[in-house]
Design a protein around this nucleic acid. Sequence first.
RNA 1: GGGCCACUAGCUCAGGCGGUAGAGCACCGGACUUUUAAUCCGGGUGUCGCGGGUUCGAGUCCCGCGUGGCUCACCA
Length: 497
Amino acid sequence: MKIMDELGGQFEGAELGNELAHRKAKVEEWRSRGIDPYGSKFVRTHCAAEIVEDFSELEGEEVSIAGRIMALRGHGKASFLDIVDASGRIQLYAKHDALGDELYELLGMMDIGDIIGVTGTVFRTRRGEISVAISSFRILSKALRPLPEKWHGLRDVDTRYRQRYLDLMVNPEVQRTFVLRTKIISAIREYLDSRGFLEVETPCMHAIAGGAAARPFITHHNALDMELYLRIATELHLKRLIVGGFEKVYELGRIFRNEGISTKHNPEFTSIEVYEAYADYYDMMDLTEGLVAYVAETVLGTTEVEYQGDKIDFAPPWTRITMAEAVLKETGVDFLNIEQTEAVAASRKLGLKVSDDATCGFCMSEAYEEFVESRLVQPTIVMDYPIEVSPLAKRRADNPNLTYRFEVVCAGRELANAFTELNDPEDQLQRFSAQVAQREKGDDEAHMMDEDFVTALEYGMPPTGGMGLGVDRLVMLLTDSPSIRDVILFPLMRPKE
RNA sequence: GGGCCACUAGCUCAGGCGGUAGAGCACCGGACUUUUAAUCCGGGUGUCGCGGGUUCGAGUCCCGCGUGGCUCACCA
């Protein structure tokens, strides 16, 4: 532009033909005119969306707005600018007559990406677009780097995750997803708070990582000179609180698992765990159905969503089926009513790799994961998990090999996990011992012994129902996001180079 | 960790059998006082992910590495 022509000889960078250098030269030009291109506070009277929504009242009125320039259309002695704030986009109309020589010339130094504050009058253009005819403006921040392309946006997945600010800037649906995420989390709190649940915070750093079958991250505390684990679940601390007398608690927070990364797994993720004294897993079924349906209704206005082409309806009641029934249906094998050797043979016939001493319950669980889970699209409550894979759940009174445990499966994946909590300290000690034995056999995801937790149970924990739900996965379902990385603002990435 | 695929301009992408690197947007210069993917005239701005090799010559073929994606394995 004209300005740059005048600057041509003054700034080495301008001769490089490099956009970054050009823009840096403009920073110097602003400063040489006594203007800080990284301006100070700007008082806004309106946001972009308000001007559009309240146009009938605002037409002809003076407003002050601010935002990032996303498009520039110069027409000689007049220019159009599109600016974007958190509420949306609005067009600015800048006329030489209205701004005068000096301001209009300064406007010519603005680039796409710069942040600007303007004052002007609301009007509608000939073509019908609600706009602001500006009478003055201030540069609030200079963008040194060019924005990704306006039409195709930013597609490169690597860049989108690494430089999420760019993704948010140019891909509007990404902002929408993360706003929804926040609303979902608020709705979860609303639902539980309004039912008398107390939100608590338990430690992220554990001396013993328990409450789930997962490999933990290990860290070190210098002053105490001790190894610590980042928590893999909030379960054992929350149940200690039930022992302590809180009757309804929940914790919504970050969990860390040192495991593989996939479209459904991020090393750190958000879970909600809820515990209710004097309740059982049937209460947790009702609670989970109610919670998820409430959240969907609150943030989307409906319990029906489309997820990756599948129509899913979260309206209760959800299908309830025992794992044994579900497995029988899919595989024709009744794992509850056969001998251990038959179970192993049947599993192998199905193509599962199980060891000779695998129990009926373990075989059933394997068959479930292989043949049932991925096929369940509608939210489904799968009940009565085998005891071998449920070290913290209460044993069924009518079948000591099964527990009062269920998982909610939806879109082929686990969404929630719940049970009537095991509150018999002796049984708990035996379960931990069995886990430790597994661990010694090389299963580094088996539980560690948590003696203090057993001690807590020895003081007496009321019968309790507990439930844990993967918040990221719920957000994925409600925002139709194919990857967990699409619902985590800054997913873990390997550093570049 | 295995398999497959991708990596070329700021962004989105094209580059047949190895022969001086291309488009659109963005950007730079010029024109234009209600445009809106503004338009018109002029300009290509590049470590072809990185490092080797083959070749007279490599974006292209071969080997290794890096990052990412999909998938399998793993993963209540």
